[in-house]
Amino acid sequence: MDWKVVAANYPLLLKGLLTSLQLTFVAIAFSLPLGCLIAIGRLSHRTWLSRACTAFVNVLRSNPLILILFWFYFLIPLITGQSVNDLTSIIIAFVVFFSVYFAEIVRSGIQSVGNRQIQAGLSTGLTYAQTMRFIVLPQAIRAMMPALITQCIVVFQGTTVVYVIGYSELLHTTSMIAERTVRPVEMYLAVAAIYFVVCYSASLLARRFEKGRA
């Protein structure tokens, strides 16, 4: 094995990692708020809204990310009637896909607080909005933190999927280098190590929140 190839291509790898991280952040920044809306929709007393949100969640959850990516990659130019750049399609697919997973986390977080705490808040004369703000959400967010961080790791790992449409994030960059230098063993081991370090550090953070709660 010859690890010089990794060192020599270090700037490209770093750029790829940054692209992957940016993609992760943008996807989370849009899908988390969208997920909150879907969660609130699912918990709504309006039956049609709750059913529509549930159906949306179930349809998307039953499909793999890669297929959703293909769908949007094909559909968006068709709907808009013009060619859009890859990044737009990727981001829309990621946001739609991951919003339903965030929705499920937010929903179970809110439900974990329980109706009795809401009743206690209301009984002291707080409004429903105040009860949500001061009593339900602070507890729900604490309860959700480990799952939210874990889901962010899943989003980061999910960015590898855009490899299939040739967008130059970390994995695709690596595969290009591996092909050019004919050093797949070193390159793929190196990239696996990079992914491991990022994901493992984040999972330690998630575990700290889990412990903090107990």
């Binding site: 009795r116 705490q117 009743q119 206690a120 808040g121 209301l122 009984s123 002291t124 004369g125 707080l126 001061f134 009593i135 602070p138 507890q139 604490r142």
Partner: peptide
């Protein structure tokens, strides 16, 4: 209406993320 009625629950329903003092002063 509820500001004029105090209610005490079977399972206390104190807010676990607030101190006792914060529980009382919130409303």
């Amino acid at each position: 209406l509820r500001r004029g009625i105090g209610m005490v629950f079977q399972h206390f329903e104190l807010y676990p993320h607030m101190t006792v003092l914060e529980n009382i002063t919130l409303a």
